[in-house]
Design a protein around this nucleic acid. Structure first.
Lengths: 126, 126
DNA sequence: CTTATTGTACTAGGTGATTAATACAATAAG
DNA sequence: CTTATTGTATTAATCACCTAGTACAATAAG
């Protein structure tokens, strides 16, 4: 089934984020082989060129490396993966706090909001 | 000085968000008059048409109303502003939690991360 | 060796976003 | 009344993104 592309941002950038997320979460383990460009494109429901472009971006960041005819592989570099995870959460948290402050919320309110949200979801155990 | 446009999302959508943020935070008080389309475009560093498009979007959501030649005004509807603030924070928090969960973080880790981030910033009082 | 698969490159076309340059009616301000 | 300002509409041109289709060299698999 095709992946979901929400905002108006370029699809290839959204794909990059999705792939990064899958790498950071371990869904694509270190050293594992990625599906081929064509298969990934089919899976995502986009043109192979678009997927190729997204993968080229990942290449530049060193998270994956391509071996001409054997396929693409996730880096074995454990520290790179730790860095990825850390930098991603850093960015996500910073952006989150900045956004809520931007609409006039205090730090206490921000923390409370997160706590409430998590707790309210845990209550929904029917 | 021109506004900052980060991601690859369409500028007019980013402008809509910026304006919503300014309304939600009270930077643009209820009933107050917005700068003209041309002035806002100049301030944001975009073409007047782009600003016009963003403002038309805001119009549809009922947050502002235009009076032909007198200018544009923020709605006086206090409840609409409360709703805006609430829905914006709802969306921001939901997206935030989903993102961190997406890279494999537990709810406890998420809460800790926010707490740490806020506390670490408070330490920086030279 | 033969063949299928892989990453990669290239051209072309369509679409939407953005800019540019005007133009106009309504009206607040003088 | 006259004038400047306002929101709004229109047309055209440019650019990035996306899709489509094709092609090629390298190599793993048979």
């Amino acid at each position: 089934m095709a992946w979901k592309f929400n905002d108006g941002a370029p699809i290839y950038l959204q794909i990059v984020n999705t792939l990064k997320r899958n790498i950071a979460s371990g869904a694509y383990p270190p050293g594992s082989r990625l599906p081929s460009v064509r298969d990934l494109a089919l899976e995502a429901g986009v043109n192979p060129n678009t997927m190729q472009r997204a993968l080229s971006e990942l290449e530049r960041s060193g998270l994956v490396n391509s071996q001409r005819t054997a396929g693409r592989f996730i880096t074995e570099d454990a520290s790179a993966l730790l860095d990825l995870r850390k930098s991603m959460s850093e960015e996500i948290v910073s952006e989150f706090i900045a956004r809520l402050r931007g609409i006039g919320m205090s730090d206490e309110q921000i923390l409370d909001t997160v706590r409430d949200k998590i707790n309210s979801e845990h209550k929904e155990e029917t």
